[in-house]
């Protein structure tokens, strides 16, 4: 697949110090990449640097094989969508959506035709002559998306666009926006601090911390086999043992009684049910492990009472060493976290 965006050693320095350190990655055409990280990781600054709103230095900053490092924000075929919809309050919805075309000197008929087409795409055509303050938060974000798409950008940058929406609307918007972006074949970078959102939106995920990309990969790769401790803590689904080893939740099983533990169980921990919930028909247990003092959410066959004791186990092959540490079992025949009755 053709590369759309290619970045090599991008740096951004403020007076207080480096915000972005040698960021390097590439994004393929039509790909949606989630950029995930905690607050202050440099995600938003990265988007603003790519959009050209913030200045930065980079060995390479190419979009569609063209060096855009010296292009102004106005010239870059990139649209950035902020956390707030930032609709212009003095313009109608249609005027907002067609603003990018107005800048490009399209005539009124063309603007209106295109504007209505994109408003139809985002199911907002009946709002064309309203003003932004007459629309709800979710509607405003849909209008903002139409305004971004109408200019047919080579790259769309989305900076936590659903952060201000309530949970149920956010969940609905994720799937819907992804559908629209895929339909339009838009290359997009989607910034979020929400793990679930990152996994749902992105074909791939970049995990950021301290101004650099720590790891990248497909959602399942990152959640099940994180490279290092930081990535494991940020996005990994499972438990981290002594900061050196990771066991994916997919490889952990729950039994109610010790006697039910199979012979192949290598990692064994007793824990208690802290909460129990159902999603899409599947029961999940929130567990707290006694010795490791870790919380983990695991699928279960049926509901259990809060406070019930359970046993969690995994086979030896499920233990993955994290980078920067070593496998806990290479030099210690009796690891500390293995249950008291070794199998």
């Amino acid at each position: 697949m053709v590369q759309a965006l290619s970045i090599q050693k991008l740096n951004k320095t403020y007076q207080k110090g480096n915000v972005l350190n040698e960021v390097s990655f590439s994004v393929k055409k039509g790909e949606i990449v989630s950029v995930m990280g905690a607050s202050g990781a440099g995600k938003s600054t990265l988007l603003q640097c790519i959009a050209g709103i913030e200045s930065c230095t980079a060995v390479q900053l190419e979009l569609d094989q063209q060096d855009i490092s010296n292009w102004s924000a106005k010239k870059r075929p990139i649209v950035l969508m902020f956390q707030d919809s930032l609709l212009f309050p003095h313009m109608t919805v249609l005027e907002n959506v067609t603003y990018g075309l107005r800048v490009r000197r399209y005539n009124k008929q063309e603007r209106e035709r295109e504007g209505l087409y994109y408003l139809k795409k985002v199911d907002m055509v009946e709002h064309a002559n309203r003003y932004p303050h007459q629309c709800s938060g979710g509607e405003q974000q849909r209008i903002a998306l139409a305004r971004a798409l109408i200019t047919k950008p080579s790259l769309l940058l989305l900076d936590e666009p659903f952060a201000r929406l309530d949970e149920s609307l956010r969940r609905m918007m994720r799937t819907w926006v992804k559908g629209v972006l895929k339909e339009e074949g838009v290359t997009a970078l989607f910034v979020t601090h929400d793990r679930e959102e990152a996994m749902l939106m992105g074909d791939r995920i970049f995990v950021m911390a301290r101004g650099t990309v720590l790891s990248s990969g497909k959602p399942a790769e990152l959640t099940e086999s994180p490279e290092n401790l930081e990535v494991a803590n940020l996005i990994g689904e499972g438990i981290v043992l002594e900061n050196r080893t990771f066991i994916s939740a997919a490889n952990l099983s729950v039994v109610l009684h010790k006697a039910q533990l199979p012979e192949s169980a290598y990692y064994i921990q007793e824990g208690t049910v802290t909460h129990c919930f159902r999603r899409h028909g599947q029961v999940f247990l929130g567990l707290q492990l006694f010795t490791d003092k870790q919380d983990v959410i695991l699928p279960a066959a049926g509901e259990l009472k809060v406070g019930a004791n359970v046993w969690v186990w995994a086979e030896e092959s499920a233990l993955q060493p994290l980078n920067g540490g070593c496998s806990s079992f290479s030099d210690d025949p009796k690891p500390a976290f293995v249950g008291e009755n070794e199998i």
Binding site: A73, L80, F82, L86
Partner: peptide, 16 residues
């Protein structure tokens, strides 16, 4: 200042 940034990424010049 974000509205200005938003307009710029949509392709508008400073004067516009």
């Amino acid at each position: 200042s974000q509205q200005e940034s938003q307009a710029q990424t949509l392709g508008a010049s400073q004067v516009h």
